[in-house]
Design a protein around this nucleic acid. Structure first.
Lengths: 251, 251
DNA sequence: CCTTCCAATTGATGAAAGTCAAGTGTTGCT
DNA sequence: AGCAACACTTGACTTTCATCAATTGGAAGG
């Protein structure tokens, strides 16, 4: 059971404008646990008994078998994940594991559905959250279908930059192998493509990324700006690659 | 304005258990129009002023520019589409065009949001619908990332068969070029792969498909059955390839 | 009935991405 | 400090898939 409501949990979009009582009831029914890195929190196919909230740390959502596995998203505080399975009382479509030591809030799906029934504002917040998740996933799929390897990387870099306020440089928020899997390519290919991007306006040194020629990089990423365009929902969607921490910005 | 409520619209999951008054208000505010084939109903990037419901016909959701375009889904009666954009009042992420002569109900997003605010049951139905859409899109993405061309085709065939009650034969519900785009491959490649599948338990003759060796085909499709597994939400998700019409079954 | 259009097929070729293998570098642990 | 583990890189090679071009076939319309 959860003792105190973390202030940042209360400020989740999901709880915005929702009666304190509703929130308290939800949290009282839930659990607040810390996990070491690389712990599997959720197994694809299991019944969705809990909605999860990442309060601290970092969680990877992935799918597939051991020999073929794909990163679907990386969730960072404060965000929920697997909301859809919870509300539908359906089996998880993705597995989840901690990438770092993480603090996770687990709210029973039963209580979640009950709260939706008694609190209309909460129900509407769930609608907005889910719509955001859906749109993030649509973007991801479009990216996979409409862009090739180099274009996906270019657009990812531009997106990260934009989310930090169009900074020219930043630090990659996750290991490259995870980034590669997320973007649907092998680590080897990511490595090669990253090197080749130096000629197209994006230099990489280890985890450090510097956009040296934005127009050129944008031309490479191609397609409409819509694909990753002004993106109010992604920050709370719970299914996009993480916003880099503010300290990811490079001076 | 909509004169009479079509019975099958009233029976939409979205309206299940919802007060007649709510439904009437929604439909009264909406429009009921018929369109010839190949009419663009929605342009990617436009503001989402209306929720759309396909009452008759068939609608393709797609994305991308003219020279690079990907089919994201095909919507068949009775299903809604672009619900997520409507509830978020956000720009459409996909375009839509009719594939056949189609009858479309258009409900102003404003009224949709109002109905969610006044009718809790309706809000919860929207939650379920959106969660279904999201899960369909997750499945689609997993398919793209975890399976190669032949595996995607094999699993698609098995899925269609299962949705019809595990029939051995059926008719493809859409043109092959659309199927190819949906599955993320070129028509040429689909054609070649289809031919090669004859040796793996799936014969194709024009639009006719016959599964001759289910175990072998399942082995080829590989991966967990979960990926396309028992799939209660897809039929109403509005973002999956169509359920073949019941007459698609081959004796 | 014939023509026209376009989806579908087929073959030849090329480009993109995956695989395999070896090596480098960094991190963390003893 | 030294070792081990592992992420990352690099190169050579293979496979898969896309592209281009030509042809076939079937359906709609004059």
């Amino acid at each position: 059971m959860i003792e105190a409501i973390p202030a940042d949990v209360r400020s989740l979009q999901l709880f915005e404008g929702v009666a304190d009582e509703t929130v308290c009831n939800l949290l009282r029914a839930g659990y607040d646990q810390s996990f070491p890195p690389l712990v599997t929190l959720i197994q694809e196919g299991a019944p969705a008994d809990f909605l999860h909230v990442v309060v601290e740390g970092m969680v990877e959502l992935f799918a597939g078998t051991k020999d073929r596995e794909a990163t679907m998203a990386v969730v960072r505080p404060i965000s929920t994940f697997i909301l859809a399975a919870s509300v539908r009382d359906a089996p998880y479509l993705m597995s989840a594991r901690t990438l770092q030591r993480s603090r996770i809030l687990m709210i029973p799906s039963v209580n979640l559905r009950a709260a939706m029934a008694t609190d209309n504002r909460f129900a509407r917040n769930v609608v907005l959250e889910l719509a955001g998740c859906y749109r993030s996933m649509v973007r991801h799929t479009k990216n996979l279908k409409l862009r090739n390897t180099r274009e996906r990387i270019a657009s990812y870099m531009l997106r990260q930059s934009r989310l930090l306020g169009n900074v020219p440089g930043f630090i990659l928020p996750v290991e490259k192998r995870i980034l590669a899997s997320y973007m649907g390519m092998t680590p080897e290919n990511l490595s090669r493509a990253l090197k080749s991007l130096a000629e197209d306006g994006c230099k990489i040194d280890g985890q450090r990324v510097i956009i040296t020629d934005r127009p050129k990089l944008e031309a490479l990423a191609g397609l409409s700006p819509l694909l990753d365009g002004p993106d109010p929902e992604a920050s709370q969607a719970g299914v996009s690659l993480p916003l880099p921490a503010t300290d990811a910005r490079i001076a």
